[in-house]
Design a protein around this nucleic acid. Structure first.
Length: 462
RNA sequence: GUCCCCAUCGUCUAGCCUGGCCUAGGACAUCGGCCUUUCACGCCGAAAACAGGGGUUCAAAUCCCCUUGGGGACGCCA
């Protein structure tokens, strides 16, 4: 049987990294087994749904490189299917109409809660006469006692007491299915073989098992993956900063780094930390998924991102960096200069934005000095040094790495200064700060004109 | 409150199923050192964990029970 998995987000917001991770797992499992991967949009709650959210989720999936073979299928386009099936359950006596209103339910729930109890709805107000307006929801008849067993790939057999499960609504009074019902119908219709989803759904599984049974469908295999927690051990939320996938993109993370990071949160393959997408597809297995919740570790993401930036072919890096630069009004273009800058900055950048931030002095017409750097290195005593540098660098025939290097060595010999004593003032003059790539490389990239101009400017600023 | 899941360095994890090879391995972060023209990179090294208590066994991180702690769920949300 062909493996078929799905990712089924509800379009009520952006795709966050927890959802992205389960999407990745499903995608990997399908790809690993030459199966199919379905994208299904669970938009059965009209009050919470937004169109922008669908677009954003799809954009995020694409950015992550997760392609799907079917869909996106919107549940809202399948209402008739759910309604028909609900009707069948009604007719066969497995479900019944419930006339109680949501308001009444809420009141009742509150009353229970005050007594320290939880309302378990078991065929209580199914009486049509009670509500002349005749609108109703449809509830599934669930067993009053006994044990419902659920088999989970990661957790083994999990048992639930039937009396803990109420007669849950499968079709709302507005004709829309509820989550559990739509999931079961769709998973069966789409012939999903493996459901990989968040831990928070484990509790829904017995309800869905009941539905699969009532509809005489085959039950897919399920694996409940633990959730991602914030650094405080609490459920991930806006409080924890960036949680949406696209926010990571905008912060300058590479998708391959995010994917690698997310996969390693709850999955492992021995001691290996770095995985290409091909390797993941080759090595991904369900049974090496972890069972315990994982706390997000942004530092490790940074490390991975830095790693992937270091490894990325310069040309591809340029393509990613250029738009960010241009957005900042930087006149960069794909040329030899950018290539040299990439060469120098890739080792010093944790994110693409980081990279761009460090590159500004290569393109700016004029630079600003950091106060501390200026105070320390742009001093009267360095004026002769700057003058010597100007003379030497002006007299160079061909302004390149080896000639600059040679010129600086001559300055070392003539002044008797240590190289560092020359490099730092020069660095401040050329970049405005005390941190940069090697000074020879900086000078070479800048070119003679800018170097001389900036040295002169350093002198006049003293 | 009830039910369900989970528990190895600060964090992600290997080892657990199929007890002995574990003096518990790797990675991030941290700290030290080397390299050095600043900052990084890189390299070398250090510190750092089997939640607690009972069993079972010749032997337990590994199996069982309890406690504790964390997470999840208890919607006509998903």
């Amino acid at each position: 049987m062909t493996v078929k998995t799905r990712f089924a987000p509800s379009p009520t917001g952006s795709l966050h990294i927890g959802g992205a991770r389960t999407a990745i797992f499903n995608w990997l499992y399908a790809r690993r087994n030459n199966g199919k991967f379905v994208l299904r949009i669970e938009d059965t709650d009209r009050s919470r749904f937004t169109k922008e959210s669908i677009d954003e989720i799809i954009g995020a999936m694409r950015w992550l490189g997760l392609d799907w073979d079917e869909g996106p299928v919107r549940q809202s386009s399948r209402l008739r299917v759910y309604q028909e099936l609900a009707r069948e359950l009604l007719e066969s006596g497995k479900a019944y109409k419930c006339y109680v209103t949501p308001e009444e339910l809420e009141e009742r729930r509150k009353a229970y809660l005050e007594r320290g109890e939880v309302l378990r709805y078991k065929r209580e107000w199914a009486n049509e006469n009670a509500h002349p307006d005749n609108s109703y929801s449809i509830r599934l008849k669930t067993p009053d006692d006994g044990i419902i067993e659920v088999k989970d790939i990661l957790r083994g057999v999990v048992r639930f007491n039937a009396d803990e499960i109420d007669d849950f609504v499968i079709l709302r009074r507005d004709g829309f299915p509820t989550y559990n019902f739509a999931v079961v119908v769709d998973d069966a219709d789409m012939k999903i073989t493996h459901v990989i989803r968040g831990d928070d759904h484990l509790i829904n599984t017995p309800r869905q098992a009941l539905l699969f049974d009532a509809l005489s469908y085959d039950v897919p295999k399920v694996a409940h993956v633990s959730m991602i927690l914030g650094s405080d051990g609490k459920r991930l939320s806006k409080r924890h900063g960036a949680t949406s996938v696209l926010a990571y993109r905008d912060a300058g993370y590479l998708s391959e780094a995010l994917v690698n990071y997310l996969v390693r949160l709850g999955w492992s393959h021995g001691d290996q930390e770095i995985f290409s997408k091909e390797e993941l597809i080759d090595k991904f297995t369900l049974d090496s998924l972890g069972r315990s919740p994982a706390v997000s570790n942004p530092e490790k993401l940074n490390w991975l991102n830095a790693y992937y930036i270091k490894k990325k072919p310069a040309k591809q890096l340029a393509e990613l960096i250029l738009p960010i630069m241009q957005e900042k009004g930087c006149p960069a273009q794909v040329d030899n200069k950018l290539a040299m800058i990439i060469e120098q900055l890739r080792e010093r950048s944790k994110t693409l934005n980081d990279f761009v931030a460090q590159s500004s002095y290569f393109y700016a017409d004029d630079i600003e000095y950091e106060q501390k750097a200026k105070d320390k290195f742009l001093k009267e005593e360095n004026i002769p040094l700057f003058n010597t540098l100007i003379v030497k660098l002006t007299s160079i025939q061909k302004f390149n790495h080896s000639s600059i290097h040679k010129a600086l060595e001559e300055v070392v010999n003539e002044t008797g200064l240590k190289f560092g004593k020359i490099a730092q003032p020069m660095r401040v003059a050329l970049t405005g700060g005390t941190v940069s790539p090697g000074i020879i490389e900086v000078a070479e990239i800048l070119g003679r004109n800018k170097v001389i101009t900036r040295l002169n400017r350093a002198i006049s600023s003293i």
